[in-house]
Structures are given as structure tokens and as C-alpha cells.
Design a protein around this nucleic acid. Structure first.
Lengths: 335, 335
DNA sequence: CTGTTAGCGCCTTCAT
DNA sequence: ATGAAGGCGCTAACAG
């Protein structure tokens, strides 16, 4: 069923059919009515592809992310999807799983499909997407990065102040009276590295020496956290607080500290980052950092929308995260 | 940059360019080479839209779900996306959030875009999508439902045996020696209702009377669980086990039971359903049901792929869930 | 107000 | 092995 069929049946021309389809003026009411009846009779449905052929857009955007199953990313994606859905766009989700090759493959397909825009979620993209070929392919596609940035005209960013936030939560522990603070890094993304820098800053500010010896490396996850706790205990040095770059790893460590006879937060305070749902499940509930995924999604969507509507957009937005005080840090440590 | 430009520059016709683009035979090697050079020189990229115009497909499928943020759904979506990505398809994700209107809106747009197939995730769709208009719109689109089913030729299903699983876990509690078992229902989806039926079956099988008085209603979530625990305690009757249709609600209740002085599983056993990540975080860890979301996703993808490739497919697959024994149920209750 | 015509970029016969 | 021409379904001038 095409507009040709409709036109023939309604005894008019395809232009007129097209006009009523697009609600344009200049169609005699009776003709319009006649066409609409035929439209309904055949349950006509315009071809978005044919329309895209002339309009150069299928009204769709793409979101690339490491993995939708990571709740933090899913929350960002959700907001973006809802926002664009309201504007008549569809969003296709791509899981690249840290693979530069996968990323390149997606970029190729997506640009061939002429998506109207792309949102990159996660700091990994700062590294992964910056190849000559990708950038060339993306030349005419607006790109918005959530927590990453690249110096191309068509790339915009919404950043989270990872460094500042980890510095703040470390300062916060010092304020509470903690002195022997450690940091656990469980990933090698730009974001993870910047977080560790925040920790370094805070320690230097407090005149702590041998900062590097206070940074423990492990794997991401419950098991990684368990290993980190074991490592810290095995070092045989004093410790009264451990800052983590990720909630889940923090929870794994907390469980292990408790299993090994330490009281949290009595003997050791633990802090996480992301404010994921698990932080309210564990015992004690985890003091963590809310880095506002919904806000990130909203800003990304707003920026991309503005670009698509030809508006001027401000780049370099920075989101301020917030400490969420719960139970894994004492109100005030007695010295 | 179109094939016309390429053809002109390479001194040949668009047909030849099209041939080398699609790797067809019958192109003199030297001509092929010349064309490929021009292709590379201009970084030519075919228009998927124009191709879709003739092939009638953009090689994309859609996944409709209540909410990507629900980890159980995200896990299914992830598998589907990866599977289809391997085959050169893109998947667009749609969050309908229980709204029939939203669902209809998406169906309209997606069919206009001529997606090659649609996957519906969640039992809600059995109700929500079954309108005359949706079914008409979807006439030529293969649809696969995860945990739902509808009697149309183009609709296929992958079911989870919710009734059987809840019956089994209830039986399992009886086997362990529990006698005063309650059930908490926190949603009104087809799946949730079927789960409650499984509970009823088990109780009847064990000659328990007044079954309905043992089914407590509450809201989904940590707070809903807390309320359910309070309700059960307030009833003033004996109870030694509570079966839940959802993990999170179960965890909320478990926390409340403990807060109110009950030992879990000493005084009361608690079981969940879904085996979500939180079940390994809470204390005690939750005994629950693994309903294999990855397998669901895989089966849905396989069925849809087979349909797209014109193969015959078997309908009515049923996935058997498994009890995951952890710490919220005693090994054997002493009578 | 309405119809005709020319693309949009590509694939596919059909001749040559 | 190659090129010309038609068509996919729709929109957008342009001419009435």
C-alpha cells in the first residue's frame, strides 16, 4: 500500500495524498476527508525508509556503552531513551564491551544508517573512539560523550567531576578523624585513573607521605573487593578507612572485613562510588557517592537535542556529585 | 558522495560501482581496483537508507520492555543485542513502562520504520499489546515474546515456568519441614498472578486450608517488602516461611524481619525470585530462583533469527528455572 | 487548491 | 564485462 494506491482509490494525485498525510494546508476539506477514508480503509502506513530517503534522517539516535547490564549505564540510557522517544526518535543501544574493534564496527554501521546523533556513555570512549577512521566516519554526526571528552567540533561533553568527588570523600574521612586511609582501584579506565588522582590530591593536602603505597589494585567486583580487603589486612600496617572507586568492589571488601573480624565502621570505614542499589542492601549500608546518572542522561539528551534543532549549545558541562552518608563511616571517629 | 560521483571519477558506470561495492563477480580486476581506489579516496560510505529503500529492510530489530533499568530485563536485552549485532543488525530499545498508549505509539513508529522483527520482554505484553490496531500494524512483522504468549501466527513465545517454579520452591520449603508458609504478591502482571497460582497449588497439595489468607499483597520494592513483613507480624498468627515473587521485595522483608527481632532463617525462612545481584549482597544471602534471563534472551534471538532466515521454528519453548540455595532457608528445619 | 515532475541513492534486470 | 534504464515510496518545487 503506497500513496499511489491511495491516490488512485481516492481519485486524486499523490501530492494531495502526501499533503493530507503531512497535515499541510491547501487541501479542500471534502477531498481531505475522502483521502483519509481510503487511508483508514487500507490501514495505510507511510514508509519511514522512503521518507528518510528524502529527508536524510530516520529520526533515530544511537547510544554506545560498555554494557547495558551495568545499572549505572542503564539508568543513563533510560533517561536518554525516554527523552528522545518523546521527540519521535528511536534509540538503538550498542554494547561494545571495551572492544575498540566492536566500537569501530558499530560506528561504521551507524553512520551508514545515518543516525541523527550518537551518545557515548563511559570514559573508555575517550580512548577507544579516537581513531582517524572513526573520526572521519563521524564527521557529520553530532556526538555527545557522557564522562569523556575529545577535541573535535562535533563532539560535546557532559563530565562528572570524578577527581573532585574522590578528593572530597577522602577529605570527608579526614574531617571525621580518620588518618590511615587507603584507596582501592579496580579498573583502568580514564575515569578510574582520575579518581585515584583525587585520592592522591587529598592525601598530599593532608601531608601524608608514601601515597602510592596506599593505593591497592584489584579486580572489579565482589571477589576483587574481597581480595583487596585481604591484601590490606595482610600488609600488617594500620588502617582505619578504605576509599573505593566502585560500590560493588567496596561491598565485597566490606563483607570480607567483617568476615575477618573487623567491625565496619568501628574498626574500618568503607566508602563506595555510584550509589548503586546494592549500597542500600548491604549491612551496614554503604556511604557512597551519588554521581547523578539521571542528570547525566538528561544533559546528554538536552545537548544532542539542541544540536539537532540547530541551537547553540554550551560544551564542557560538569556535574557535581554528592556524598551520600549512610552507615559505613562513623559520624565522628574518636581519636 | 554517491555511487554516481564514484562512477564518474573512476570513469565507469554506477552499475559497476555497485558491483564492486557488493562484491559481485564479473568485474574486470583492473576496473575493480580503480573503483576501490576512488572509494577509499573519498571515504565512500553507502547509504543504508537508500539500500533499505530497495531491500525493504534496514537490518534492525526492536526490543520493547517495561524498563531497561530492571536488571533482569537488561540481561535479556544484552544477549539479544549481542546476538543480533553479530549478524549485522542493530537493536533499538523501547521503554514502555506499563503504558498501553506508549506501547501502541512505539509499535506504530517501529512498523513504519519496517523493523525486521520485534521482541517483547515481560509478561505485561500479553495484555498490553493485544489490541486490534497493534495486531493489524504488526501483521507482517515477526514478534517473539519473552514470558508471554498470544495466538497469532507471527507471534512466537519463550516461556518461563513461573507457576511450576513457585510451586517447587514452596514444596521445597515443605520438604525442609516448614509448615506455616505465606506468599507475598507485589505486582499484578500475568506472570505475578501465575506465580501466586503456583503457591496455591503447592499448598493444596499439602492439604493446607484457607490458602487465600496466606497470600499477602504489597507494593514491589524494599519498602513494599518492609510493609509485607509488618503485615505478617501484625496478623499475630504463626509463620515460619515466606515465599516472595520478587527478590527485592523479599530482601526488604528480610531486613524488616531482622529489624523486628526475628532470625532469618532461624525464625522465618525467606525466598525470592530472579536471582538478581542483590541476593548475594544481603545478609543472609537470599535463597532464590534463577529463571535464566540469558537463556531467555538467547532463545528469543534464536527464534527471531530463524524466522528472518526463513527457517521453520518451534513455538512454545518453556524454560525451567532452578532453585538457588543460599542462606535464607535452613538446611533442615527441626520440628 | 491540485497535479506533474524531478529527484533522494541504490539495486537489478536487460541489452550490448 | 559493462552500461542504460526503471523502480523502491515519498517529498518538494513548479506550474496550473
Amino acid at each position: 500500500m503506497t500513496i499511489y494506491d491511495i491516490a488512485k482509490e481516492a481519485g486524486t494525485s499523490i501530492s494531495t495524498v502526501s499533503r493530507v498525510l503531512n497535515n499541510k494546508a491547501n487541501v479542500k476539506p471534502e477531498v481531505k476527508k475522502r483521502v483519509e477514508e481510503v487511508l483508514k480503509k487500507y490501514n495505510y502506513k507511510p514508509s519511514a525508509i522512503a521518507r528518510g530517503m528524502v529527508s536524510k534522517t530516520m529520526k533515530s539516535i544511537a547510544v554506545l556503552t560498555v554494557d547495558v547490564r551495568v545499572s549505572h549505564y542503564a539508568r543513563i540510557i533510560y533517561v536518554i531513551e525516554q527523552e528522545f522517544s518523546r521527540k519521535g526518535y528511536n534509540v538503538t543501544v550498542c554494547n561494545i564491551g571495551n572492544s575498540a574493534r566492536e566500537c569501530a564496527r558499530y560506528i561504521k554501521i551507524l553512520t551508514e544508517k545515518q543516525v541523527d546523533g550518537i551518545v557515548l556513555i563511559g570514559s573508555v570512549f575517550s580512548k577507544i573512539i579516537d581513531t582517524e577512521e572513526n573520526i572521519a566516519l563521524l564527521k557529520n554526526t553530532p556526538v555527545v560523550m557522557a564522562n569523556g571528552s575529545l577535541p573535535y567540533d562535533n563532539f560535546k561533553s557532559v563530565m562528572v567531576d570524578d577527581r573532585g568527588t574522590i578528593r572530597e570523600i577522602t577529605d570527608y574521612l579526614f574531617d571525621k578523624g580518620y588518618r590511615n586511609i587507603y584507596y582501592v582501584q579496580d579498573m583502568d579506565t580514564p575515569s578510574a585513573n582520575i579518581k585515584a588522582d583525587g585520592f592522591r590530591e587529598s592525601l598530599k593536602l593532608h601531608n601524608i607521605e608514601r601515597v602510592e603505597s596506599r593505593i591497592i589494585e584489584t579486580e572489579y567486583g565482589l571477589e576483587g573487593g574481597r581480595d583487596a580487603a585481604d591484601k590490606i589486612i595482610a600488609m600488617g600496617r594500620e588502617f582505619d578507612a578504605v576509599v573505593f572507586g566502585e560500590d560493588i568492589t567496596a561491598i565485597g571488601a566490606m563483607k570480607q572485613f567483617i568476615r575477618r573480624g573487623f567491625k565496619v565502621p568501628g574498626d574500618v570505614a568503607v566508602t563506595g562510588c555510584n550509589n548503586c542499589s546494592e549500597t542500600r542492601i548491604c549491612e551496614p549500608e554503604l556511604t557512597t557517592i551519588d554521581n547523578k546518572p539521571e542528570l547525566q542522561g538528561q544533559m546528554c539528551a538536552a545537548i544532542l537535542s539542541d544540536i539537532l534543532e540547530g541551537k547553540k549549545v554550551e560544551n564542557g558541562l560538569v556535574i557535581k556529585a554528592e556524598i551520600v552518608e549512610r552507615e559505613s563511616v562513623k559520624k565522628l571517629k574518636m581519636l
